[in-house]
Nucleic acid binder design. Structure first.
Length: 479
DNA sequence: GAGTTTGAAACT
DNA sequence: CAGTTTCAAACTC
């Protein structure tokens, strides 16, 4: 039965943020994506490109073809795979082992086992998928990925064992300390939304994952790239690290050694209501950092530092002085925070504004684990090179880069021309723990190093337009 | 291991 | 932009 013709065997989902259609069918896998960098026609849907053999199509960059993999050998190394990253593998549809015909050609699989996608477990409910991306006609190329049934079949063994250890793996992974151990268990998002920890971390899903219908793999580079761009265009901070370490003294740990340094905070903060920021539901807690004024949590009891523990820099020093005399109640602190934040925001962007700017992106990439970060880091040199004088610095500070915020501070402080030195030491993201980037709260300051706060001097930032999209404006910046 | 809870992300 | 829904991880039993 050709399930592609069956209406009830298909589901189509329009991915609003990405502008893509993800269409699922019970029997086939299609990725149709007019992606940003597409220009690649891979293994095709024979219905769409009749007469073209799956192995005949060659991408612009990689050979697209098939190769044989023994059914019990799922762990070819990336080296073994060579450059054949783009291959027609989709694990979407888990086939029962009874469907397999090892004696036939079905054990000659189109397997995407390169790199971190090897040994990817099959996707039990995985549907065929069509991803169709179109963005205002920008893209003219398409990517077709035709799922080969045998591909799916061959993965089922791995899937079973993978599913078995799913929970253990998940816990283990998340107890880990880096992207190298990241995994996900996505079932519906196809690992193409920020729900997916791998996608959010800009890494491809790996054999550690137990996701279903995963499209976040080397095979779908174009699709992933397309959707990443979409996601990022919607929220420039979508892939920014959530925990940052602003520049400043390393001794800023406050009085409580159990608390994280005041400058290490979740960039957007959490929004916890019931967990009291004491469970891993809380992104701050999960990241091992205290809550900050950026948070909107209720009943914060974050053991790494309660919400009131971190104030915008404008108030931080004042607060330190206050702490020496005693602690504030939370209500007092909140009132205190609000007062100061509002006071600042009227005249110029708060430091969180600066950090929340899309410009964080260029610098983020430098801190993502290189082995797992799947895209070339954006140039941090660009950021630095923009800072040739105070004027351009300030502009860049707003429009481009978070570490330039710090650079701006120092420059304004010292009127120094050693921008690059400064910027390189400014904001360091210590961990990409929780990839979620939902809110960009413009009015609070969590980790900022506001020059205002230190000197009381009001900078000439208020006339600077709010944050443009990262890609566009950043690219337009003078270099 | 299944079911529930939680809060971020996505959607309307 | 606020409210709602979806999603996957965290958690509980």
């Amino acid at each position: 039965m050709d399930q592609r013709t069956s209406e009830d065997s298909q589901t189509k989902e329009f991915d609003g943020p990405t502008g893509c259609y993800i269409q699922s069918a019970a029997d086939d896998t299609h990725v149709h994506c007019a992606g940003a960098a597409a220009g690649v026609v891979m293994n095709h849907d024979p219905e769409m490109l009749p007469g073209v053999n799956q192995s005949q199509l060659v991408s612009n960059e990689y050979l697209v073809g098939t190769f044989e993999v023994p059914s019990d050998n799922m762990a070819l190394s990336d080296h073994q795979c060579g450059g054949m990253h783009r291959r027609n593998l989709f694990n979407e549809k888990a086939r029962t082992t009874s469907d397999m015909s090892p004696q036939s050609g079905s054990n000659l699989r189109h397997a995407n086992i390169c790199g971190d996608t090897y040994a990817k477990p099959p996707q039990p409910s995985a549907p065929a998928t069509i991803v169709s991306c179109s963005e205002k006609g920008r893209y003219s190329s398409e990517v077709y990925i035709h799922d080969d049934h045998s591909t799916q079949k061959t993965m089922s063994n791995a899937a079973e064992s993978s599913q078995e250890s799913h929970k253990k793996k998940r816990r283990k992974v998340q107890d880990g300390d880096g992207d190298s151990c990241r995994s996900c268990s996505c079932k519906k998002s196809k690992c193409l939304k920020l729900y997916c920890a791998c996608f959010a971390a800009k890494v491809y899903c790996s054999g550690l994952c137990s996701c279903q219908g995963c499209l976040n793999n080397h095979t779908n580079e174009e699709t992933v790239s397309c959707i990443r761009q979409r996601t990022e265009s919607r929220n420039p901070l979508a892939f920014a690290p959530t925990v940052t370490h602003a520049c400043g003294s390393g001794s800023d740990f406050g009085d409580d050694s159990n608390k994280t340094p005041a400058l290490v905070r979740h960039k957007r903060g959490c929004n916890c209501r019931k967990s009291s920021c004491l469970k891993k539901y809380c992104e701050c807690f999960q990241s091992g950092v205290g809550c900050s004024i950026s948070c909107r949590c209720q009943s914060c009891k974050n053991s790494f530092g309660k919400r009131e523990g971190v104030l915008p820099l404008a108030t931080e020093k004042m607060e330190k002085g206050a702490k020496a005399k005693g602690t504030h109640s939370k209500e007092d602190k909140l009132a205190f925070d609000k007062q100061h934040v509002v006071g600042q925001s009227g005249d110029l962007p708060s430091t969180e504004n600066l950090f929340a700017a899309p410009s964080l992106e260029p610098c983020r990439s430098s801190i993502v684990h290189p082995s797992t970060y799947s895209e070339p880091p954006l140039s941090t040199t660009r950021c630095s090179s923009q800072l040739h004088n105070s004027q351009s610095l300030i502009k860049a500070d707003i429009l481009l880069s978070p570490f330039e915020t710090c650079a701006a501070e120092k420059i304004l402080k010292y009127n120094s021309s050693n921008i690059q030195e400064v910027s390189s030491s400014c904001i360091t993201s210590i961990k990409v723990v929780s990839p979620n980037k939902k809110r960009v709260s413009p009015l609070h300051t969590g980790i900022g190093l506001s020059p205002i706060g230190r000197s009381g001097r009001k900078l000439v930032l208020k006339s600077i337009p709010s944050f443009p999209s990262l890609t566009g404006d950043a690219d337009n910046e003078p270099r």
